[in-house]
């Protein structure tokens, strides 16, 4: 099973996994459009989607309220899972996740800074906030990586501790920016970033994250071979012909860019990038060409369902979906931490 190989080796199994996930995604989307404070029969949802129910009283709810939110969920879920996969290859550690490594916190700090300072307010959602989030993500990722690496290889302990420490500092920085800013209306906007949620989704917010996701994932698919090489370690990859320093720098920038854009729209939703790649590897193995499409679909399914739960569990309360993913992801992380064999390479 080399890069493209899971295909020749296990064609049926791989196609089944992809097909199953696609079917699951369709069901999840339908459920997310039908359920909520107002329940709409699935048949009518389909009619509305296909334009056969122009007069339906639920048209606005489905098309303008729920659909953009579901679509943002697909994009953000797929994106976070893909980023998690790539970060895990970069640091050769399955416990990496954009949230745990402080990348999301960095993106939040960047975004909040721009909101509070009101930089480029007219362009805020489309340009300034994503750009600031990207810068924050890149800086925090570099910081965590440098801290975790100091004096030799990256160990799990050092990586997790560096991620946690950087996250704390950045959260504190975010709070500091917030309390020193005079305006109270910032508070709610900022709380949204720190908790992570899809509630603010609107049609005009979908284009940039969707383009970023598709383009970023496409580029990463072409990088499947060097990503695989990273799994044998820096020296191993070098003697197999990979210029690791340059490649790593390029992937750092790409992962930060994707994180920045996604976080700018959804806030810091944790653990999607931890759980989904882990389960996907169990299903189709670790080679990236086969893995990334499965991860993207799995992430989309996961976040759509999580967001559905967030909207309905405590209805009419809308729980930020980041709270739910942390509630499931935290225990999952601990389970992974415990079942790591002693002395396993980080």
């Amino acid at each position: 099973m080399t890069c493209r190989a899971s295909a020749p080796r296990r064609p049926l199994g791989y196609v089944l996994v992809l097909g199953g996930l696609a079917a699951l995604l369709a069901v999840a989307v339908l459920a997310a459009l039908a359920l909520g404070s107002v329940r709409i029969p699935p048949g009518q949802v389909l009619d509305i989607l296909t334009g056969r129910a122009e007069a339906s009283p639920f048209r606005t709810i489905v098309l303008d309220v729920r659909l953009p939110r579901v679509l943002l969920g697909i994009v953000v879920g797929a994106g976070l899972a893909v980023i998690g996969t790539v970060l895990q290859a970069l640091v050769r550690n399955q416990l990496a996740d954009p949230f745990l490594l402080g990348v999301s916190s960095g993106a939040s700090t960047g975004a909040v800074l721009v909101i509070v300072l009101g930089i480029g307010a007219s362009l805020a959602t489309t340009v300034t906030i994503p750009a600031a989030a990207f810068a924050g993500a890149l800086l925090s990722l570099l910081l965590v990586y440098t801290l975790a690496r100091g004096g030799g290889g990256i160990t799990t302990n050092r990586l997790v501790l560096a991620g946690v420490a950087v996250s704390y500092v950045l959260s504190a920085l975010t709070s500091l920016i917030l309390v020193t800013s005079a305006r109270a209306d910032h508070l709610q906007e900022v709380l949204y970033w720190t908790l992570g949620g899809l509630g603010a989704a609107r049609w005009d917010m979908l284009a940039l994250p969707a383009i970023t996701l598709v383009a970023g994932t496409a580029v990463l698919l072409t990088l499947a071979r060097p990503l695989d090489l990273l799994l044998v370690g820096e020296e191993g990859a070098t003697v197999l012909g990979l210029d690791t320093a340059r490649f790593r720098a390029a992937v750092f920038v790409l992962a930060s860019l994707m994180t920045g854009v996604l976080v700018a729209y959804s806030g810091a939703i944790g653990f999607v990038g931890l759980m989904v790649p882990h389960m996907a590897r169990m299903a189709v193995g670790a080679a990236h060409r086969a893995l990334l499409p499965v991860v993207a679909l799995g992430g989309a399914v996961f976040l759509v369902l999580a967001d559905l739960a967030a909207r309905t569990l405590a209805a009419p309360q809308d729980i930020p979906v980041g709270v739910l993913t942390a509630l499931t992801g935290g225990p999952f992380f601990l389970w992974m931490l415990r079942r790591r064999p002693e002395g396993a390479p980080a």
Binding site: A89, Q94, R281, G285
Partner: peptide, 19 residues
């Protein structure tokens, strides 16, 4: 020699084609 993430033997050997 080690390889993370449970790569298969076939995958690890095939990496020799990378250069």
């Amino acid at each position: 020699g080690h390889a993370g993430f449970e790569l298969t033997v076939g995958q690890v050997v095939a990496m020799g084609r990378a250069p």
